[in-house]
Design a protein around this nucleic acid. Structure first.
Lengths: 248, 248
DNA sequence: AAGTGGTCTAGACCACCTG
DNA sequence: AGGTGGTCTAGACCACTTA
């Protein structure tokens, strides 16, 4: 394996071996060679395959683990990250109760339809205007009280067969369903937060009054290769909950 | 240097050498042996000092760089992180204009007084009730329009000599002043976000109407050893700006 | 006992920056 | 040319898990 990148134009004329190996592993992850939750080959086996030393493969895996694509477990192996496990289920949910109570959130499906992408949705999902999309609306409730109203848009071609029945029957984190049933893995997401006033319709659904300040969370979730695969807009009641963040 | 930790009680009976070295470097950072913006000794010199190999010192520095305590620059050295440089100035500011315009924010000091900590502030800053605190109120403006109203509480003992004159005269990021003038380095921060309604007083300061939804950002900033050294509550107008976040 | 990830070393060489 | 961080190797050994 060449350490140089002879075709490199512009800046990255040099790509270290461990980054090339990282790219190759990422390709295999993207292609679904190893399913979420399963182990990838051991470091020594990968080293042999790529004709590199353990340390070099190790550095590639380190970066993938830092990006939450892989999970290392000493003595057991290195596993493909998944949204299905207890510990990693709500990786992207930053909602917390002010009193620190647990996360026994109840889900209630309000709406699910297949429709066509408008201009904004198409642009953000990198689709063409009029492409099929799935539109979902749901509530999250904490001890019976509505806390979040989510509106979700998904590319129709990626989520064939997703409908109200399918969603209603499944009870668990959405990203776990997407991963298991549609092979779509959410890797990272960008969010934009704002404060907005509830309109009458939203207020009714959230059990509050029109004009109540709500935290608006616009999310764009991406899969391998930074391909956008979900838009989500959450409206959060924040009288007894908040959005927590860590700055570093 | 022993790789074992013979006094270890409970779980961490084993601490690898690179973590012990990391702890020693952190101690020196905390003690101010090297000032922000200056270079620490080279990897080879530290390896000699700690009687370890370059690779082991390197791993310790890698973790400190990942935590934004140090910054590596190939060919030049490894430097103590600072809030004073152009690239790292607004490390903790997640405010962005919807139209993507730059960050030429104007600061306007409204208020600065030395007073006594109330119960809540004392608890969050890990002080005793009645301990001296500095209370600051200021505005951030974008092209003349108020966007953020910040209320800030600082432990009085750490910020001796901080007053309105000092703040008014200085024009730059606050954390850069804290670092240069008081030797207090903000390492990380926790934030809680909510949507709230502007009251009359806040509305007047932000140039909007009472009842306008505002994004409330409660921040607790920490220095070495997770010691809290600042409380800050920002109220953001989000008609033309938003709080951006990356989930990973 | 065997297999996995985790640590550590010694040495070589490369890429980048500054005199 | 010399110093700094960055990459890579080969090999040894440790810690953790499973059988």
């Amino acid at each position: 394996m060449a350490a140089m990148n002879p075709t490199g134009r512009g800046k990255p004329a040099f790509s270290p071996l461990y980054r090339q190996i990282k790219a190759l592993i990422t390709q295999d992850l993207q292609a679904g060679v190893w399913k979420p939750g399963t182990a990838i080959p051991s470091e020594l086996e990968l080293a042999e395959r790529f004709r590199a030393s353990q340390g070099t493969v190790r550095k590639a895996i380190d970066e993938l683990a830092a990006g939450n694509l892989l999970v290392r477990r000493q003595g057991k192996g290195t596993f493909v990250a998944t949204h299905t496990e207890q510990t990693t289920r709500y990786r992207f949910l930053r909602l917390a109760a002010d009193d620190g109570s647990g996360r026994g959130l109840e889900r209630r499906l309000l709406h699910c339809e297949r429709t066509r992408a408008g201009a904004d949705v198409a642009r953000l999902l990198e689709l063409k205007g009029g492409d099929p999309v799935v539109r979902v609306r749901r509530l999250l409730l904490d001890r019976g009280a509505p806390v979040v109203l989510d509106d979700i848009w998904l590319p129709g071609r990626l989520f064939k067969g997703l409908d109200a029945a399918r969603l209603a029957q499944y009870n668990g984190p959405m990203y776990a369903l997407f991963e298991a049933a549609f092979g779509v893995q959410m890797i990272r997401a960008e969010e934009k937060l704002r404060a907005v006033a509830a309109d009458a319709a939203v207020a009714a659904l959230l059990g509050t009054k029109a004009g109540t300040p709500l935290l608006s969370v616009e999310r764009r979730a991406l899969t391998y290769g930074n391909r956008p695969v979900e838009l989500r807009r959450g409206l959060y009641r924040t009288e007894a909950h908040h959005y927590r963040n860590e700055l570093q």
